[in-house]
Design a binder for these strands. Structure first.
Lengths: 257, 257
DNA sequence: TGTCCTCTGTACGAAATCGCACAGAAGCGG
DNA sequence: CCGCTTCTGTGCGATTTCGTACAGAGGACA
């Protein structure tokens, strides 16, 4: 079901400095020259893969992650083993934020939803940065507020909206965080994130295929039309998109290279 | 439906110092002598009443509240006017926490669910306290982490659990935050918090009456048996209860007077 | 006492989703 | 090419919840 390999492969072929600016918070942090000099040598580029476990509930958070083109999911796992995603993290933020609030322990599971690159950092390095740099702290706190907005809206969305609406919303959120239109996602994975049955996702995805919004073939989901998805999504997407500024949404990979 | 009277009545008959210790964070904050001397004269005792609006979405947070025996609800209001509660605040915490993270604007609606006393404070006074006092900041941040835990679990609960389970869970949470066993709650209000129909609450409440867990008569809900409620509640209650320490749960009004 | 408003109980069909099961298609490794 | 595993499509009845509507009870007030 999931892989627990916590020692991630470290990539050395790409220059960290070039990749780092593709994460929004990290770009903000690195804008400060003295922060940049301190932080940059400490960042490690790693690759993460689907359903890999990053933190378990109660884990000590020694390492934090800045996703680049990968997506991390904050999951609650219930007594019967079913899961619900309460938040997702991509290039707009960082994973392990609760350390900013002074808690060293993870209150949720973090699993990977979309594979890709992320930049890894020792927690104590980040601690140094934000206690010494006011502006860095502000960037991080803003991220945290965005997280709370996201969780709250997910709460609303899961309570009141249909699986189809939630699926559209979720796909758009993923799409905002990755490069390109092809997503490696099985229906089983999507179901575990939305807190629904796999069969329910099959039906909803079928509707979206009929409407030419997506194409789906064995774990390969291709987004054909964001417009159709946005039209079929609930109001929640507009609210959760505010974690990105309009600028971020247009600045995709092509411009960051 | 709701009252928008934002200028709350200020109570002068009770001594603030005696009431203040009945709020958990406030008690922590006041434990520090110099914080106490600064804070205590600035606290105003107010009464709040059901469905009163404390903040609207986007409001500037000038005043924060420490509930004493009242309960405040963080609500999302959707385009069709329906509401879902994402968090509740009682004597374990404070309302207006996002100010701690440097945001002056409310990201949600705050309505009153249970009437009673609260202590009101100018936001800038609290700002002074936590920038100058490390221990105070830590108390507040701990509160904030508890809030995130609560919202996350509400997300899970609303996604996966039945109305009956959610009702039990919610009643227990309310009960933890008030004095006594009688709650002034119409089924309409409960429905608006759980994001369900009023008729759905009638049915669920009917089951709880059959099981002798509660008695319900025209806006007066009497809790007869916490045990039965706990038995019928979902696992979420145990998780959200961690906002209280065991000590807090036994320290009810009788011991705080 | 009568009137009015609020709140609760109940009903109904419709819709969404569930849990489960099974068949078939797609892809992988040998 | 074959066999195995993974993934998707589909079907079924059961359950939950929805939206809506209406009647009746309870309390407030004149």
């Amino acid at each position: 079901m999931n892989t627990s390999l916590k020692t991630l492969q470290i990539e050395k072929e790409l220059p960290v400095s070039g990749v780092a600016v593709r994460n929004k918070v990290l770009r903000d942090l690195l804008a400060e020259p003295n922060v940049r000099d301190y932080l940059l040598p400490q960042l490690r580029l790693v690759t993460v893969s689907p359903n890999q476990v990053i933190y378990e509930l109660g884990d000590k958070i020694d390492l934090i992650y800045f996703p680049v083109d990968s997506v991390f999911s904050g999951l609650a796992i219930m007594e019967d083993g079913t899961t619900v995603e309460t938040s997702m993290f991509g290039r707009e933020g960082l994973v392990g934020m609760s350390t900013i609030l002074g808690s060293g322990l993870s209150k949720q599971w973090i699993w990977i939803s979309i594979s890709g690159y992320a930049l890894q950092l020792d927690t104590r390095v980040l601690d140094q940065v934000f206690v010494q740099n006011e502006r860095a702290l502000k960037s991080l706190l803003k991220c945290y507020r965005g997280l709370v907005t996201q969780i709250s809206q997910r709460c609303v969305c899961n309570t009141r909206h249909t699986i189809l609406e939630r699926l559209c919303c979720w796909l758009l959120m993923i799409h905002d965080r990755v490069d390109g239109n092809n997503l490696r996602l099985t229906q089983e994975m999507i179901a575990s994130r939305l807190g629904a049955r796999r069969a329910g996702i099959t039906v909803a995805a079928g509707m979206l295929q009929e409407r030419q919004a997506i194409e789906y073939r064995r774990g390969q989901l291709h987004i054909r039309s964001r417009e159709v998805l946005e039209h079929a999504a609930c109001e929640c997407y507009k609210i959760m998109r505010t974690q990105f500024t309009p600028l971020d949404l247009t600045t995709q990979l092509s411009q960051c290279k």
